[in-house]
């Protein structure tokens, strides 16, 4: 546990050294926040007062929580592990008495925390100051929302970790990464709330892990999901977090066997 905390702190510090990147990220998040808020409010106005349980204040909350969590949850993925597999540096990870997946997860939680503080909270404040935004309706919503955000970070990490590990078998995984980004960006509810999707697309989304990376925490924090529904929303995330981490362990082991057989 102490090891985990220290590794998370290291992730936090690594990413906090790039202050300019944080500032640039925050600015981008804010600009896109304005654009998305304008577009979605216009769509809402033309459709009536509410779509799929979202009225104007919850739509604003959807937009700005989305912008706030965009850097926190690593939706676009990372290339560090892929690079280490490609260069063979992954061998160094296997020479340590710790599990590589847990090590990288800890680092990613640290990265998420600095991004939440450095990019997320400022973006959220901008949205809150300039728009009429719905807030979590209760302390329970705040608390379960926080848990849900952590789970979203874990699900996104676990999925991306598996994608990175494919580098054990494929020379180039850029195509797969791109596919993941496009599919994930749409299905996680970044562009449009998942409840706004046509039925068939919503069904696909709900069978995928992607809403667990963004839509679920936003639903709780925007107050669209309340009461007993919170448990099932978080439950789905727990399922995907566990499933993807376990799958990741299998892929990691297979990757290590490949290294053992082929040399690294």
């Amino acid at each position: 546990m102490k090891t985990f905390v220290l590794l998370a702190r290291a992730g936090f510090r690594r990413h906090s050294t790039y202050r300019l990147a944080l500032l640039a990220g925050m600015t981008t998040n804010c600009v896109f926040g304005f654009i998305r808020a304008a577009v979605l409010l216009a769509a809402l106005a033309s459709a009536g007062t509410s779509i799929g349980g979202y009225d104007a204040p919850t739509t604003i909350a959807f937009v700005w929580w989305g912008q706030a969590l965009l850097g926190t949850v690593n939706l676009w993925g990372f290339a560090e592990v892929k690079e280490r597999v490609r260069t063979g540096d992954i061998a160094v990870d296997f020479l340590r008495p710790v599990d590589p997946q847990i090590t990288y997860l800890a680092g990613d939680l640290g990265r998420a925390w600095i991004n939440l503080l450095g990019r997320g909270v400022p973006a959220l404040l901008v949205g809150a100051l300039l728009f009429d935004m719905a807030w979590p309706p209760s302390a329970a919503s705040w608390a379960s929302g926080a848990v849900s955000v952590v789970l979203a970070v874990v699900v996104a990490f676990a999925g991306n970790f598996i994608i990175n590990l494919l580098a054990f078998w494929l020379v180039e995984i850029r195509g797969i990464t791109l596919l993941w980004m496009i599919t994930g960006g749409l299905l996680c509810g970044l562009y449009l709330p998942v409840p706004w999707f046509p039925d068939w697309l919503r069904t696909i989304a709900n069978w995928s892990p992607f809403p667990s990376m963004l839509q679920n925490p936003i639903d709780i924090l925007a107050g669209r999901v309340v009461g007993a529904d919170i448990a099932s929303t978080v439950g789905v995330q727990v399922f995907w977090a566990v499933a993807l981490l376990v799958l990741g362990q299998f892929v990691l082991r297979a990757g290590r066997r490949r290294l053992e057989v082929q040399g690294g």
Binding site: R13, A91, V92, V98
Partner: peptide, 25 residues
């Protein structure tokens, strides 16, 4: 390994020792 690094590239050197200490419990 002369060609590989076990240190954390973008952290102060001190931190690498701290993390490695934790990794080795």
């Amino acid at each position: 390994f002369g060609q590989r690094s076990q240190l954390w590239w973008d952290l102060p050197l001190r931190d690498s020792f701290e993390i490695l200490g934790a990794i080795h419990r």
